[in-house]
Each structure stands twice: as structure tokens, then as C-alpha cells.
């Protein structure tokens, strides 16, 4: 039963001749942490964009809980229980942290135009719904230690905090599958340690399955159950963290990158 929780089968997409993702397949077990690694431009984010419906893959299938979700509209995919964060933070900058997280409750709430515009007291339908969901969001705020940012506009928050707000917003959707695109990018080592701890918590306590893109190998090693390495859109190795990290081909892919970095500097 476990194996048909989430799987990607022969996923491929090209952009004007560039094979950004080229026949990638993998399977994620429920309640596990699965990481995708690879050098810059390998196609990691593109895989996320296909899963969350922002891109339509040229071919391949994406199966979630036994159901094909390939090519569905992004909001449909969200409603199935898949949430994500973005590599370049995509927050609602002129909303407060609380409002950002409340937006995360969108699919679990119902207030429409009429009840939303006509509530006038605590007992009104819209007000009751608002109160209940604010309470739930408050728990996420506590979990991620965001109390001090609660009523601040997120546009003014430091980068690391913004990343957490984005994580919180994704959690507010109560996803079964959570896609995290380089969550630790731009964080200092203390923030990164907290993050490692929270991601582990989210998996263990909340039972959320996590698909992670991450450049920090320490973090990947610490929390991943399985790792997939890709380069130029092609899978080049899959297995438990140690296996993949010592795989000659993976080392070569990263080495190639480092050499080019050295050459530049």
C-alpha cells in the first residue's frame, strides 16, 4: 500500500529544445522524507512546478494516492493535499504573517461573498469560521516560533523569517505531501538547525510526507530517508543518503560544478 502514496513516472518537459526534465521517475513512501539534489539548473524546481501544476509536462505521469494528477490546475492539486514553498519566496508581501497563514486555510474554509460581507457580530457564520481557523493558525505560529512576526507585514520581515512564514503557510493547508524548495537557502547555521528540527517534527508529529530540494548536504544527510540526484534533467543516482553521496557519478556532477566555480574565481 505504501508505495502508491506518491510517484512520478517518466516525467519529461522541454523548454525550446532544452530538456529541463528528462524521463525522471521516483516513488515516495508515506511519512518519509525524500530529497532531490543536483547542481544548479539540473531541473529540480521544474519537477516541483510540474507536480504543483504550474507547468504541464510533455510526458509522464504523476500519481498521488492512487490518482493521476498530471496536468491538473494548481488549485485542484492543492485541494488534493499537496502544498509547497518556493525557492524565491512567493509570499503575500502586503499581508501580515497571520493573514498569509489564514490564506493557507483557504481550501478548508467556506465563507463566500454574502456571509463574508454581512457578518456583524461574534456569532455570525463568517466570524465563527474566522475565529476557529485563526486558532488553528495560531498553533502553527507557535510551532514555528513566529509570535513576534504575527501581526507584521511579511514584506518587512528578515529573509529567514519569511522562509518560515512560507513554510507555515504551506502547513496551514494541512498537506499530506509537502514540497520544500531549498528551505534553508539564505539561513545562518542556527536558523538551519532549527529548520532541520522542525522539518523532522513536521514529518514525525504531523505525519506529513516531505519532498525536499536542498543544496545543504548536511541537512539532506540528517533528515532524508531517500535521495535522488539529477543532472541536466537526468536521474543519476537514487538511494539512501550515504549511497547517493558517495556515488561516483554524483560526485562527478558536483565536482564538475566546483571546477567551473573555481575557474571563475
Amino acid at each position: 500500500m505504501d508505495s502508491d502514496f506518491f510517484s512520478v513516472d517518466n516525467l519529461a518537459i522541454t523548454f525550446g529544445g532544452l530538456r529541463a526534465v528528462d524521463r525522471v521517475s521516483f516513488t515516495i513512501n508515506r511519512r518519509s522524507i525524500f530529497s532531490i539534489i543536483g547542481p544548479n539548473g539540473a531541473g529540480k524546481t521544474t519537477i516541483f512546478n510540474c507536480i504543483s501544476g504550474l507547468y504541464k509536462p510533455d510526458s509522464g505521469k504523476i500519481i498521488f494516492k492512487g490518482e493521476e494528477i498530471t496536468g491538473l490546475k494548481p488549485h485542484r492539486i492543492a485541494m488534493k493535499g499537496i502544498a509547497r514553498t518556493f525557492q524565491n519566496i512567493e509570499l503575500f508581501l502586503r499581508m501580515t504573517t497571520m493573514e498569509n497563514l489564514m490564506l493557507g486555510r483557504h481550501i478548508h474554509t467556506k465563507t463566500g461573498v454574502w456571509s463574508g460581507s454581512t457578518f456583524f457580530r461574534r456569532g455570525s457564520k463568517a466570524a465563527r469560521e474566522e475565529i476557529t481557523h485563526r486558532e488553528q493558525v495560531e498553533r502553527i505560529i507557535d510551532l514555528l516560533d513566529l509570535q513576534s512576526a504575527r501581526d507584521q507585514f511579511v514584506g518587512g520581515l528578515p529573509y529567514g523569517t519569511q522562509k518560515l512564514v512560507e513554510l507555515g503557510r504551506a502547513l496551514a493547508l494541512e498537506p499530506e505531501l509537502l514540497l520544500l524548495d531549498e528551505p534553508s537557502a539564505g539561513m545562518n547555521s542556527e536558523e538551519r538547525q532549527d529548520l532541520t528540527f522542525w522539518v523532522k517534527d513536521i514529518q514525525e508529529e504531523l505525519g506529513v510526507t516531505i519532498l525536499l530540494i536542498e543544496h545543504n548536504m548536511q541537512l539532506v544527510r540528517d533528515i532524508s530517508d531517500r535521495v535522488l540526484a539529477i543532472n541536466f534533467g537526468r536521474p543519476i543516482g537514487e538511494g539512501i543518503p550515504e549511497e547517493v553521496q558517495n556515488d561516483p557519478e554524483v560526485l562527478k556532477a558536483y565536482l564538475g560544478e566546483e571546477e567551473s566555480i573555481d575557474a571563475v574565481s
Partner: peptide, 12 residues
């Protein structure tokens, strides 16, 4: 503020 984020959060 971000229509991409809105739709991936389930906003039609």
C-alpha cells in the same frame, strides 16, 4: 501579491 502562490495554495 503573488498569483502563483495563490493558486498553489488552492485559490481558484
Amino acid at each position: 501579491d503573488s498569483d502563483i502562490a495563490a493558486e498553489t495554495m488552492g485559490v481558484n
